[in-house]
Design a protein around this nucleic acid. Structure first.
Lengths: 362, 362
DNA sequence: CCCGCCTCTTGAATCGGTTCAAAATTTGCC
DNA sequence: GGCAAATTTTGAACCGATTCAAGAGGCGGG
């Protein structure tokens, strides 16, 4: 009798099987794997032998999870496709900072994302993580709403939403923009154009100030306002500054550039709201036969590494990208659970893409 | 009596609490959240109301996991720090392919990694994933060994190990190398140098053929052998071709270049075993005042996007990087569990970094 | 009005461990 | 040798859900 229990191999062997085989309680078997020092060497060896005989490779994380409650991984979520994390220069740099902090804290990273709304909701609500870092670039509010339901610690990257109950880290976007515009104004520029990151989803082309005001993404709006504040102080009518919205990629930036430089009085200064856009502009201007910075000055925003090696090197408003990532991770991993909203300092990095306008001497 | 059960809020509310509050069985409550169509609308609303009243946001994934057994995420593991996934161009491109396939398959990605051996073992054995994709660049064998203990589907990226029981996808490294060397030989080059990716951990500098033969990383060895095969066919003594090992970064590649070009008969053709190395070489040669391809030809290996926009654009042996990632994901997600080892085709992409040697006309 | 069928709901088993108070054993000391 | 203290081991509760066979209730047809 009981012969059919012998033919193991068909069912996975569990801790309880090992315990039984070794003639000890399940509790002891568990200790052998988790706190070996607490069990007598003699018994430990017996259990280990039984484990080996049964082909048991150690406790299944699935079981452990339920009891321990800790996944030891933090989720990084965005409303973009997962590939975004590896393609966008800013995201990549941010992820590098996050990755380093996670390495240090002994946590893994789970990339949570989805193309469509429904899948995103599902992925967020079922992700096995101890907390979330939210890339709020697109669809931030929705992302935050979904995440809240998880009752897990989370941090929004970007202080877009002004709700003080949302933990967030970010920069003062308006101040950064003022730095950029101020730099160009000081150099003597008077003909500006703004190349913007999205104000709302899936739209690009020239936008009015009114449309900027209604932006879904607060940080985009704030940057524009920062630019225009400074320009207004210099006596430049904000209404006269063309603003082109892009989707932060080449496809939507090039048409904006074409529109800008086909007019009779093209800008001498380009305020790009991301380094990615700025780098596309650099490339496009070169192909167009315009020299940067002699003919046109370009200031980026973000401070990604690619800006250091571009031709010419990019003048930009540098965010402390690595520090942002690090801080976000710490806020998740750190047990004290007070809501924090941190603003990190930005700085203007002057490199080779800015100079006085061509008519400065005239 | 039973008064203290009333003060909820201190313990998290579970499905069973909701069920009790709604006056239904736990099974029915579960159905409300997972197969709402199966429960009468009237009852469903009652349960939903109870859930809302108790602040229950839906089933906890931890519990679900244990029962369902499926995490819905695949782990991507490497022995490098996590940041590697976002910094190395080849890894990044590969991850893009993997990410797209995961998006399509509705799976998430968990990045598994660790600086030190012990942490890596722990991270691999406790990662909550349905399967592993292994970046075997460094420490491949150990990585495979650790992963095997998980009894989960896995795929090694790189066919480094010849053990047929290890599922793997990769390319024919020797064939790729032959393509590169053949191209340069056809152009008339006779003075070659090889800039290699690692043969063993943490080492760089000039290596002998004997050291190549003892390489821990089979794919590195195969590439060198591919190069030298072709050169030997052209009457070039393999022993005369300098081989410099690098750690696939700028710090270890530059010294190799300095050594190569400080001699009296510097090479006219550089065989770089990764695009990253090739791009560093391009940059270094420019700074050194040497023109590519007029003075020196460079062929890379991998086919990363950066090679398209470099100056000059890089001639390289292109791996089907995206396809490799996609295939790996499919092998994990696909239920039929036969061991597969797939070799994908490579091709030579001729761009601007190769030309006949300067003395070709002489 | 009864019966069978169909639709919902129930209850209990299960997933695979960890933990901790209490029991059992060993050790130390006089 | 006896007793208290220290060390190990046990056993059962618990983590939070899903699943499915079996039961209950409602409905239409004869």
């Amino acid at each position: 009798m009981a012969a059919q229990r012998i033919d193991r191999g068909e069912r996975t062997v569990r801790l309880v099987d090992v315990a039984r085989a070794a003639g000890v309680s399940q509790g002891t078997a568990s200790n052998v794997f988790n706190r070996p020092e607490v069990v007598r060497p003699e018994v430990r060896e017996k259990v280990e032998a039984a484990a080996k005989a049964l082909g048991y490779k150690g406790p299944d994380p699935k079981g452990r999870l339920l009891r321990a409650g800790k996944v030891n991984a933090i989720g990084v979520a965005t409303a973009e496709p997962i590939a975004y994390f590896f393609e966008d220069p800013f995201a990549r740099t941010l992820m590098t900072g996050i990755a380093e902090a996670c390495d240090r804290g002994g946590a893994g990273i789970s990339l949570v994302s989805a193309a469509n709304e429904e899948a995103l909701a599902w992925n967020i609500s079922t992700a096995l993580v101890d907390g979330f870092i939210l890339f709020c670039l697109q669809g931030g509010p929705r992302l935050i709403e979904l995440t809240r339901d998880r009752d897990l610690p989370f941090v929004a990257l970007e202080l877009g939403s002004r709700d003080p109950s949302i933990p967030a880290v970010g920069i003062d976007n308006a101040a950064g923009a003022r730095l950029a515009a101020g730099h160009l104004a000081d150099l003597g520029h008077r003909r500006f154009a703004i190349l913007s990151i999205p104000f709302v989803n899936r739209r690009s082309g020239r936008v009015s100030r009114e449309e900027v005001r209604r932006a879904a993404y607060a940080s985009s709006r704030e940057r524009v306002e920062g630019y225009l504040d400074v320009l207004a102080d210099c006596g430049i009518d904000p209404e006269s500054v063309p603003i082109f919205e892009t989707e932060n990629d080449e496809e939507t930036t090039v048409p904006a550039l074409e529109a800008l430089f086909s007019g009779d009085r093209p800008p001498t200064a380009l305020l790009a709201m991301s380094d990615r856009i700025a780098l596309v502009a650099l490339e496009w201007l070169r192909r167009r036969g315009l020299t940067v910075p002699q003919d046109v000055s370009v200031v980026g925003f973000d401070g990604v590494p690619e800006g250091e090696t571009s031709d010419p090197p990019l003048t930009t408003v540098a965010q402390p990208i690595a520090a942002l990532g690090r801080l976000a991770v710490e806020m998740i991993l750190d047990p004290r659970a007070e809501v924090r909203r941190e603003t990190l300092p930005i700085r203007l990095v002057r490199r080779g893409s800015t100079a006085p306008p061509p008519d400065a001497g005239a």
